Amino acid sequence: MLAWSGMRGVVTLAAAQSLPVDFPYRSQLVLIAFVVALVTLVVQGGTLPLLIRVLGIRGTDEEAARRELSLLIAELQEAAIGQVLDNPELRRRDGGRFDAEVLEEVRERFGRPLPGSSGGAAPDPRTAQRPELVQLLAEAQQDALDEARSLGAYDSGTIARAQKLLDAGSLRRGGL
């Protein structure tokens, strides 16, 4: 299809017109080059839609791309929840355990941006746990995305969009 939709004689016409003015048969060569360009434009250009149908070439199906992205995001979230929230050995960076209420809150709200903590007096210790837990989930999602990328399970465009979503989510969560 790429060859069929090529330049169609433009180079030939440009080469013919670049001939010196006193070149023998220059005007006839320019006319022939023009006719060749015109015929290929009409014949090849006119039959290009037919060739595309015969070859069965299709463009990007946006609905299918959205479904694939949704499937990948759901897979990443499941992997993150399985690796982090469902892990009985889950510990904070300091070795302590996460509060059960924080685990449930993050489990319910995971995938949506969590609200930032309001400034004030002494912060609730559970509030300090949320960003740490969400960071662990984000890391697990990134690991799952890297694995999907290495397996070739998804289209590269879908992987790139999922990476953008993960990056945007980590930037939003950075202000927790």
Rank of each mutant, 00 (worst) to 15 (best):
G111E: 10
E89A: 11
E132I: 05
L41G: 15
P24F: 00
I159H: 03
V134H: 05
L29Y: 05
D146R: 13
G95T: 06
D124H: 13
A15Q: 09
S70A: 13
Y25P: 01
I32L: 13
R109T: 10
G59R: 08
L166N: 00
P20R: 02
Y25A: 10
L176E: 15
A122M: 13
V43E: 01
Q28H: 12
R93D: 10
E62M: 14
R92V: 00
S118F: 11
L114P: 05
Q163D: 11
I159D: 01
G95R: 13
A80T: 02
E132A: 07
G120F: 11
D86P: 05
I32G: 12
I159A: 02
D61T: 03
A128C: 07
G119N: 13
P49H: 10
R149W: 07
V134E: 15
G6Y: 04
V11A: 15
V35H: 02
L38Q: 02
V102F: 04
S18A: 14
R172L: 15
A79K: 05
Q142F: 05
P131H: 12
V106K: 14
L166I: 01
G45Q: 00
K164L: 12
E139Y: 03
P24K: 00
L165F: 05
A128Y: 13
E101W: 11
L151R: 04
R67F: 10
S27Q: 15
R92L: 03
A148F: 00
E89D: 07
I32P: 04
A33R: 06
G6P: 01
G96V: 00
Q163G: 12
L166Q: 03
I73Q: 14
Q17S: 12
K164W: 04
E108V: 11
L72D: 02
G120N: 07
G56R: 03
R161Y: 04
L51V: 03
A168Y: 10
L114G: 09
R91T: 09
I159E: 00
D124P: 07
S18Y: 07
E147S: 09
L2N: 14
L69N: 08
L41Q: 02
T60A: 12
E108W: 03
G169S: 14
Q17R: 15
T127W: 03
R58L: 01
G116H: 15
G116V: 13
L2Q: 15
V10Y: 08
E68P: 04
F110A: 10
A144Y: 08
A74M: 03
L114R: 09
Q17V: 11
L176W: 12
L2K: 11
L114D: 05
S150M: 01
I32C: 12
D99L: 06
I73L: 12
T40G: 10
G116E: 15
S170F: 10
E139G: 12
T40L: 14
P131F: 08
L19W: 01
T158K: 11
R126Q: 06
A153T: 05
A64W: 00
A160Y: 03
W4I: 00
S150L: 03
T40A: 09
R172D: 15
E101A: 14
V11P: 06
L145H: 05
G95D: 02
G152H: 01
S156D: 12
Q141E: 15
P123W: 03
A138C: 05
G96E: 14
A140T: 04
Q77V: 08
Q28E: 13
R130D: 00
G6F: 03
